[in-house]
Design a protein around this nucleic acid. Structure first.
Lengths: 225, 225
DNA sequence: ATAATAAATTAGGTTTACCTAAATCATCAT
DNA sequence: ATGATGATTTAGGTAAACCTAATTTATTAT
C-alpha cells in the first residue's frame, strides 16, 4: 500500500479520478486525450494498473476504467498535494492563479510527506485552494459540501455555482458575461446590511460583480459544510 | 543550449562538478560511488554526454571526465537551485539542516525558472546559504569570495566562520562558548612556526582563543578573494 | 619487466513507458 | 440483422537508464 508509485502512474490515477468524479467510468480515449498520449499506451497502462497486488483500477476491456479504493487514495494524495502547492504559491510566493497549475503539476510529484506537512501548517491547514476547490485533509477526507443560495453565503467564504436562474435570457447573458455560470467559483466579498446587495469575485475573472438579493436567492452554490 | 536535460543527466553533471571542484577530473568509479549505480552505467552515460551537440563533458576512455562550459553552466544552475531550496526550507518552512539536503535533491529537478526567481526574491537574493556555501546568482556567477580552512588563513587577515566541525558536540559547545560559530568574524593574530598553533581574536569577544591545526583544518572561513 | 590487482569498458539484457500499424470489438443507422 | 464507423486492443518496436558478467586497460609491487 505504501510502495512508491511512478510519476506516470500518479498522473494516470489523478486523471481517472477527475474523469470519474461525477460517477461512471473513464474511457481509454478520454485518458489518452487528457494525458496527451496514444490510446494504445493507455490500454497497456490500464492492464498493468488492474493487475498490481493491490489493484489500483477496475478495468474491463472496451468498457472503461474506474479506481479501486487504493487508487482513489493515491489520487486523493496527489490532489491534496496539488492544491496545497497551488495555494502556497499564491499565498506565499506571489503567484497569480493562472501561473500555479502547471507549476503544481510538476511539483506535486516531488513533494515529500514532510514538505506537505510544513506547507499545510504554513497555510493554517486550509480547506480550499485559490480556485475554490476543496483540499483533502491529511487523512484524505474532502471537506463536506452542501448547497445553499448565494443569499445565505457568509461574507469571505467561497462557493461554486451550481445553478443560475434561467427564466430571463437577458439576465442569463449578463451573468454569463461576468463569468457567473455553473462551475464557476466565487468568493463573497461583502453584503451591505441594509439592502443585502452583494459584491463578489468570480475566480479567474478580474472584475468584481454586484448582485442584489432577488437574483442572489436564485443562485445556488456548493459550499463547505 | 536550452534543451531540457533529464533528471539523470542533471545529476551526473552536478556530481562531476562537485568532484572536479578543486581541479582535475572525476573518475568513473567515483561517479558510480556518489550516484549509487554501477560503473558500467556511468561509462555509458559519459560516452553519451561527450557526444551531444554541445557536449557536456570532455571524456577520455580510462582517463576520467571533466565538464565543458555547457556542462558547467548546467551544473551551476542545479547548484543554485539546490542551495536556494535548502535556504528557503530552513528560513521559511522551519526545516532543520539535516532535513533539507534530501528534499532539495528532489525538488531541484522540479523547479521552474519562475519558482527559482520567486524563492530568490522571497529570501532577499542571498549570496550564501545557512551552511555558508555560496549560491550562484541568477547569471550563475559565484560570489567573489573564497573559502579556505583556518589553517590556510594568513596571519593578520580577517575571515568569517562558515562551517565548524559538527561531529563532537563537546567541541562544538566549547567553540560556541568562545563565540566561534558560523557567521562570526575573526582575525588571525599569530601562528607558531613549529606546531602551527593559532591565536585568534573573535570580533566582539574580549578573550583571544587558541586553536591547534587539527581543529583548524576543520574550520572553514570566507575570505576576500 | 612482468605479473597481480584494480579500474574501466564492452556486450548483452531488463524495465518503464512510450510509439505506430494492424486487428478486433462495439455501436448505430439502415 | 448487418455493415460502416469509431473506439479499443494487440503486436511489435524504440529510447532512456539501469543491470551483471566478461573483457580490456592501467597501475603497482616485486
Amino acid at each position: 500500500m505504501s510502495e512508491t508509485l511512478s510519476h506516470n502512474i500518479q498522473d494516470y490515477l489523478k486523471r481517472i479520478f477527475e474523469l470519474t468524479r461525477s460517477g461512471g467510468k473513464a474511457s481509454t480515449s478520454q485518458l489518452a486525450e487528457v494525458l496527451g498520449i496514444s490510446a494504445a499506451s493507455v490500454t497497456n497502462m490500464l492492464q498493468k494498473l488492474s493487475k498490481t497486488d493491490p489493484p489500483y483500477v477496475i478495468y474491463q476491456k472496451h468498457h472503461g476504467v474506474e479506481l479501486t479504493e487504493a487508487g482513489r487514495q493515491a489520487a486523493l494524495k496527489m490532489l491534496r498535494r496539488h492544491r496545497l502547492i497551488e495555494h502556497y504559491l499564491v499565498m506565499k510566493l506571489g503567484y497569480t492563479w493562472d501561473e500555479v497549475h502547471q507549476e503544481a503539476e510538476i511539483l506535486e510529484h516531488a513533494m515529500s510527506p514532510l514538505l506537505e506537512k510544513r506547507m499545510d501548517a504554513a497555510l493554517g491547514h486550509p480547506e480550499f485552494d485559490p480556485h475554490g476547490d476543496p483540499i483533502p485533509n491529511a487523512e484524505l477526507h474532502m471537506p463536506e459540501i452542501v448547497q445553499i443560495s448565494l443569499n445565505n453565503l457568509d461574507v469571505g467564504k467561497n462557493g461554486q455555482i451550481v445553478r443560475v436562474p434561467h427564466e430571463d435570457p437577458q439576465v442569463l447573458r449578463y451573468l454569463g458575461k461576468c463569468g457567473l455560470r455553473p462551475g464557476a467559483k466565487i468568493t463573497l466579498l461583502s453584503r451591505t446590511p441594509y439592502d443585502k446587495t452583494m459584491r463578489l469575485q468570480v475566480h479567474d475573472v478580474a472584475e468584481e460583480i454586484v448582485i442584489g438579493p432577488t437574483l442572489g436567492d436564485q443562485i445556488t452554490l456548493k459550499v463547505e459544510a
